[in-house]
Amino acid sequence: MKIVVCIKQVPDTSEVKLDSKTGRLMREGVPSIINPDDKSGIEAALRIKEETGGSVAVVSMGPPQADFALREALAMGCDEAYLITAKEFAGSDTFATAKILAGALGKIGFDLIITGRQAIDGDTAQVGPQIAENLNIPQVSYVEDIEVNGCALTVKRQFEDRYHILEVKTPCLLTALSELAPPRYMHVRGTVEAYEKEVQTLGFEDLAGTFDPSCIGLAGSPTSVYKSFGKKPKGAGEMHKNLSADEAVSLIISKMAERHII
């Protein structure tokens, strides 16, 4: 089985701060990491390869620096890596990104595509499902477990209050939760070999004809960021002691009315 995992290099949001004036992410000096859900997807793919054979390719769309994330994936044990990068792709939203990635994935070839559920720098959870729609293949999102049965997969999908056990035929796309498979470390030998392998670059020309050029980049993106803002820290709560049950109920009701909750 040829598995292709889509990964995104993201700032480690546990260390990132927002500029209070501009509302932009302050990325300077913040380490970049492989998005955690995507990394779990890499691990799941490597486990499938170890159990059933095949190969694992890893794909990332991003600036040239994303090479480092791809090398990390190679050092974990992936066989091939592709960097999708071009100035024409800059500013793409999820719709445009999915168009480009779908074009690239069509060229690379796949039996199974795994993406992360969502990236920690955007939390949209849109790219994976949109890739599947562009490629016209079945998809299962929020995947917590995968079992391979020949050319079909039995997949456990997390739902709000239950799980769904689904069977899906390949080719298909799955979006991975970070619970799917806690990722392994790189192997030291892998870090050496990661730089002996080639990361193949696919640019605008390489992908010509795989998507409508008017649907990509900043101009082709239907969404634009109107405003970003950080969450305000919650203030201290109010403590009321020594109230009777009736007094407590009327106090709670009045507070809720005050805040237009009821």
């Binding site: 470390y185 790189m186 870090t191």
Partner: peptide, 11 residues
């Protein structure tokens, strides 16, 4: 440090 050494350092 080379990229390869930086990758090792991360590991």
């Amino acid at each position: 440090l080379s990229k390869q050494h930086l990758l090792q350092q991360k590991l």
